[in-house]
Design a protein around this nucleic acid. Structure first.
Length: 860
RNA sequence: GGGCGGUUAGCUCAGUUGGUAGAGCUCCGGCUUUACACGCCGGCUGUCACAGGUUCGAGUCCUGUACCGCCCACCA
C-alpha cells in the first residue's frame, strides 16, 4: 500500500536510549519555534492559558513540577488539535519575599521619601549598615536580581519539557506590571469601585501594615480566660471572662444576648470598669453567646472582628489603645474619651501599661487586677484559635487607619453567578469559591503600608493649614502611567510644593500583591496597550492553579475581570492538588523532605517524572512516589524498543486483512475517542492510564501474536497486513503519548516521520480505522478470545515451569474461546501449538511435544 | 459550627450509565523468547470503612454513623 507513512525514510538507532533526549530536543524545539504562539488567528482557534507565575525569590519544588506538568499536557493536546496555544510564563517578583531578598542580597533598604538616583550602583557585598535607596531604585535592584532567578527557573522548565512560548514572558514588577495595575486601579476609582476609608483594619504589628481578609490564617495559641468583675454601682458586681485583659482600658461596653434572662435587668444600665473606673453601658446583641464564658462579654476597640461588628452596630465610641507597632499608647484618663470616676487611680494603673507590648501589658494588668481584687480566681489556661497574617509571627491587631478598598460586598451575587458559569475541574472545587464569596465580611483592603510594590497613582492637595485633603485626590491621565507619586508630580504642581501647605502629598502606600496578581490575564494578554492580542486571547481558556489559593488568586482575578470587563477571566479553572510525602503530609522545606526537581529529572528522566505527575488526578493530592517515576521511565524505554521493533522491518506493506490487526486497530480507535473526550474535560490522568494499558496489551499480546506472521512465516500478504497495522498503530500511539512523554515520543517520531510530533495533528478514531474501512467489531471479538486463550496457555506453561517456546503437540480449548478461530494461525504460532481443537472442557488440555520437565509427573 | 473530598489487595490507586472485584508497585516462582534482561511469563493478596434502605441484583444509587484530610467561620 503506497500510503503516506512510507514517504519518509526510516532511520533506526542500534540501541535506543533515553539519556540525553532533553538536551537533544530542547534546543531543536526552540530553534524550530515548535511552541511559538501564532498571532492573528481568530479567538476560536486560540487556546490561551493563564499560567501561574511562580515566585522567583523562592525555589521550585516538586509540587511545581507536578502541577505545571498537568497544564503542559493540556497545552500540548490543544496544540495538536490545531489550536494556536497562548502559553506564557510569568515571574512573580512582587511582594514581601522579593523585598526581603533584595534587602539582604544588596544590603539596601527602601526609603520612598528619597528621590530616584539614576546612577546608583549597589556595593559588591552588602555593608554592615543598610544603604537607603529610593523606591524606583529599589525596584530596579529587584528586577536585576530576579533576572538571575528567572534563568534558573527557565532552565528547569525547559528540562521538564514545558511547551511554553518563551517569547511570552511577563513579570509582576517592573514598568509594565505597574502600568497595568495602576491603570486598572484608576479605572476602578473613576467607576466608584475603589474608595478610601478610615476604619478599623486588620493590622500586622511586625510588618506595620494592613492585611486583607484573604491573607488571614488561624493558629491555635495558648491563652487563658481571666474572670474580671465590673461594679454595678450598688456595691455588687457583674463578672465577665476575657482572654485579652490588657484591652480593659479599651473597653466601651458589655454585651449579652437579648434573650439571656440573667442579664436582661442590666441592659442599658452603666457599669464601671475595674482599675480604671470608666463607665460603660451594658448592651444586648444577638451575637453574644450565652454559653460562652459567663455569657456576658466586654467589647473593646478592638480585640477582634466581633468587637468591630458590635462597635458598629451598637454605635459605640472608640477607645483605641493598640498602636501600629503593637504597644499600648499613652492615654489620659479624665479626658473626653476616657472618663473615669477616679482619674488619678486610673492614670496610675495605666501608666504602668503604656508603651508595653501586648503580652507584657497582659502580664502587668493581671498583676494589678489581682492586687485590686478585681480578678476572680486565677486565669484558666485554654488553647484557642487566633488570627494571624499568614506570613506574620504575632497575632493580628485591629487598628484604625486610612486604607484603600475595592468593593466586593455589593458584587457578591454577580460573582456567584460568574462562579456558576465557570467550568471547574474537578467540579466540586466550585464550592470553595462559593463558600468564600458567601463568607466575605467586608470589601477588599488593597493598600499596604510597605515600601516595595506598586504605588497608588494618586496625590492629595494640602490645604493652607497643612492638612491633607484626602477627599479630593489628584489623579493622573492613564497615558502617564506608570508613575510613582513619591517622585512624580501631579499636574499643575512643582517639586518644591511637595509636602508644603498649599502643595500636595503623594499617597504613601503600595498595593496588596494580589492587586497585581489578580490581573495576570490582562498582564499576559497585553491589556490595555495591545487590543488586538487581548481580543485574541481574552477571556482565556484556562486558569490552572492549586486549591489553596482559590480565595486569593482565583477569587481576586474573577473579581477584577468582573469589575473591569464584565466577564469571567477564563472559561475553565483546572485545579491541581498538592504533592504529599509518603506520610500523607504536605511536602515542606521545614520537614526536610523536599527533593530538588532537577535531581529528580536527571535521575528518572523528564518523561519519567512527567509520567508520575500526570497520573495525579485533577484536584487530588498525590503522594510523592519515585517508584511511579521509575514506571514512567520503563514505559518510555518500552516505547523506544517497541517502536524500533515495529520499524525494524516495515516492508512489505499492504491491505490490513488479518482479524488480529483489524481488531487491534478497532480497539485503538475506541481508545482515541475516549482519550479525546477525556482530555477535552481535563482528565489527563485517565487518558494516560488508558493509553498505557492499551500499549502494554499491544506489546505483550498483539505484537507477540503477530510476530511470526510479520516475519513472513505465512506469506507476504500476512506480513503486509501486520506491518501496515503496526505502523498505523504506532503513529497514533506516539501522538497519544506525546503530551505526556514529549521527549521519547519526539525521538521515535524523528526516526520515521517528518516534523515534530508536537505539531502533528491529534489522532482521530476515523483515521485509525480508515485503512480497514471502518470499525470491525467482529475482529475485536476474535482478538479478545485470542488474548484470553494466550493468557491461559501462558499460565499453564508457567505453572508447569516450561519454557515459553516449548511445543504443544495438541491442544483442546474450551468452546467459549472458539471465536479466536479466524486468528488461529497467529495464535498457534505464538503459543507453539501444532494441532488445535475446541471441546467441552473447562480449561485448556495440552499435550506437550516432549516429556514433562519434572520427573515423576505424567503428561497431561 | 458550616461546607467539600476521601475510606477498594501490604503500598499507590483505577473502577464510565447498578450486572461475577481490577492495574501497577512490593513479594514469590519461572523463562537466554531473532524489539527490549533498562526484558518476558506467571502466582499470592480483598466482609469494597460501618449500619440501614431502594433493587431480581449495590463498590456504584438513597439515608445515617465513624474515621482521615482540606476549606471556611463573629474564636469574649
Amino acid at each position: 500500500m503506497a500510503d503516506a507513512l512510507t514517504e519518509h525514510p526510516i532511520t533506526l538507532p542500534e540501541k535506543p536510549a533515553l539519556e540525553g533526549l532533553e538536551a537533544k530536543w530542547g534546543p531543536v524545539w526552540e530553534r524550530e519555534g515548535t511552541y511559538r504562539f501564532t498571532p492573528g488567528r481568530p479567538r476560536h482557534e486560540v487556546f490561551s492559558i493563564d499560567t501561574p507565575p511562580p515566585t522567583v525569590s523562592g525555589s521550585l519544588h516538586v509540587g511545581h513540577v507536578f502541577s505545571y506538568t498537568h497544564t503542559d499536557v493540556v497545552a500540548r493536546f490543544q496544540r495538536m488539535r490545531g489550536k494556536s496555544v497562548f502559553y506564557p510564563m510569568g515571574w512573580d517578583d512582587n511582594g514581601l519575599p522579593t523585598e526581603r531578598r533584595v534587602q539582604n542580597f544588596y544590603g539596601v533598604r527602601c526609603d520612598p521619601s528619597l528621590p530616584y538616583d539614576p546612577s546608583f550602583q549597589p556595593p559588591d557585598k552588602p555593608g554592615k549598615a543598610p544603604i537607603s535607596v529610593s523606591r524606583p531604585n529599589f525596584i530596579e535592584l529587584c528586577e536585576r536580581l530576579t533576572v538571575e532567578d528567572e534563568k534558573a527557573f527557565e532552565a528547569l522548565w525547559r528540562h521538564l519539557g514545558l511547551s511554553v512560548d518563551w517569547s511570552l514572558t511577563y513579570a509582576t514588577i517592573g514598568k509594565r506590571a505597574q502600568r497595568v495595575s495602576q491603570a486598572a486601579f484608576l479605572r476602578l476609582l473613576r467607576k466608584g469601585h475603589a474608595y478610601q476609608l478610615e476604619a478599623p483594619t486588620l493590622w500586622d504589628v511586625d510588618f506595620r501594615s494592613a492585611v486583607a481578609q484573604a491573607e488571614l490564617e488561624d493558629r491555635e495559641q495558648p491563652g487563658a480566660y481571666h474572670r474580671l468583675r465590673f461594679g454595678k454601682g450598688d456595691g455588687s458586681f457583674v463578672e465577665i471572662d476575657t482572654t485579652r485583659p490588657e484591652l480593659l482600658p479599651a473597653c466601651v461596653a458589655l454585651v449579652a444576648h437579648p434573650d439571656d434572662a440573667r442579664y436582661q435587668p442590666l441592659f442599658d444600665t452603666v457599669v464601671m470598669t475595674p482599675l480604671f473606673g470608666v463607665p460603660v453601658p451594658v448592651k444586648a446583641h444577638p451575637l453574644a453567646d450565652p454559653e460562652k464564658g459567663s455569657g456576658i462579654a466586654m467589647i473593646c476597640t478592638f480585640g477582634d472582628l466581633t468587637d468591630v461588628i458590635w462597635w458598629r452596630e451598637l454605635a459605640l465610641p472608640v477607645r483605641a489603645v493598640i498602636q501600629t507597632n503593637g504597644a499600648l499608647k499613652p492615654v489620659t484618663f479624665g479626658s473626653e474619651a476616657w472618663p473615669s470616676h477616679d482619674a488619678a487611680r486610673a492614670q496610675g494603673a495605666y501608666d504602668q501599661l503604656a508603651n508595653l507590648s501586648v503580652t507584657k501589658a497582659r502580664t502587668k494588668i493581671v498583676e494589678l487586677l489581682r492586687e485590686s481584687g478585681d480578678l476572680i480566681g486565677e486565669p484558666r489556661p485554654i488553647t484557642h484559635p487566633v488570627k494571624f497574617y499568614e506570613k506574620g509571627d504575632r497575632p493580628l491587631e485591629i487598628v484604625t487607619s486610612r486604607q484603600w478598598f475595592i468593593r466586593t460586598m455589593e458584587f457578591r451575587e454577580a460573582l456567584l453567578a460568574r462562579n456558576r458559569e465557570l467550568e471547574w475541574h474537578p467540579e466540586y472545587m466550585a464550592h470553595r469559591l462559593e463558600n468564600w464569596v458567601n463568607g466575605l465580611s467586608g470589601d477588599w483592603c488593597v493598600s499596604r503600608q510597605r515600601f516595595f510594590g506598586v504605588p497608588f497613582p494618586v496625590w492629595y492637595p494640602i490645604d493652607q493649614d497643612g492638612h491633607i485633603d484626602y477627599a479630593h485626590p489628584l489623579l493622573p491621565e492613564e497615558a502617564q502611567l506608570p508613575l510613582d507619586p513619591s517622585s512624580d508630580l501631579p499636574a499643575g504642581y512643582g517639586a518644591e510644593q511637595r509636602g508644603q501647605p498649599g502643595g500636595f502629598a503623594g499617597d504613601p502606600d503600595v498595593m496588596d500583591t494580589w492587586a497585581t496578581s489578580s490581573l495576570t490575564p490582562q498582564l499576559a494578554a497585553g491589556w490595555p496597550d495591545d487590543p488586538a492580542l487581548f481580543a485574541q486571547v481574552f477571556p482565556m481558556d484556562v486558569r490552572p492553579q492549586a486549591h489553596d489559593i482559590i480565595r486569593t488568586w482565583l477569587f481576586t482575578t474573577v473579581l477584577r475581570a468582573e469589575l473591569e470587563h464584565g466577564s469571567l477571566p477564563w472559561t475553565n479553572a483546572a485545579i491541581s492538588g498538592w504533592v504529599l510525602d509518603p506520610d500523607r503530609k504536605k511536602m515542606s522545606k521545614s520537614k526536610g523532605n523536599v527533593v530538588t526537581p532537577m535531581g529528580l529529572l536527571e535521575e528518572h528522566g523528564s518523561d519519567g517524572v512527567r509520567y508520575w505527575a500526570a497520573s495525579g488526578r485533577p484536584g487530588t493530592d498525590t503522594a510523592f512516589d519515585p517508584a511511579q517515576m521509575k514506571v514512567g521511565r520503563r514505559l518510555s524505554i518500552k516505547l523506544l524498543n517497541a517502536s524500533r521493533f515495529a520499524l525494524l522491518q516495515a516492508e512489505p506493506r499492504g491491505p490490513i486483512s488479518e482479524p488480529l490487526d483489524r481488531g487491534m486497530l478497532t480497539q485503538l480507535s475506541r481508545l482515541v475517542a475516549d482519550a479525546t473526550e477525556s482530555l477535552d474535560a481535563y482528565d489527563y490522568a485517565r487518558v494516560l492510564e488508558r493509553t498505557e494499558s492499551f500499549f502494554w496489551g499491544f506489546c505483550d499480546d498483539y505484537l507477540e501474536m503477530v510476530k511470526a506472521r510479520r516475519y513472513g512465516d505465512f506469506g507476504p500478504e500476512g506480513a503486509a497486513s501486520a506491518n501496515s497495522a503496526m505502523l498505523v498503530a504506532l503513529e497514533a500511539l506516539l501522538r497519544l503519548f506525546a503530551p505526556y512523554l514529549p521527549f521519547v515520543t519526539e525521538e521515535v517520531w524523528s526516526w520515521w516521520r517528518p516534523g515534530s510530533v508536537h505539531r502533528a495533528s491529534w489522532p482521530t478514531p476515523a483515521e485509525v480505522v480508515a485503512p480497514i474501512g471502518g470499525e470491525d467489531a467482529g475482529a475485536v471479538a476474535v482478538f479478545k478470545d485470542a488474548q484470553t486463550a494466550l493468557a491461559d496457555i501462558r499460565r499453564i506453561k508457567a505453572m508447569e515451569k516450561r519454557a515459553v517456546k516449548s511445543v504443544i503437540e495438541r491442544a483442546e480449548l474450551p468452546k467459549t474461546l472458539e471465536g479466536l478461530t479466524p486468528a488461529a494461525r497467529d495464535f498457534q504460532a505464538a503459543t507453539h501449538i501444532r494441532a488445535l481443537t475446541f471441546g467441552d472442557v473447562e480449561a485448556p488440555r495440552l499435550i506437550f511435544a516432549e516429556e514433562p520437565v519434572k520427573a515423576g509427573e505424567s503428561p497431561a
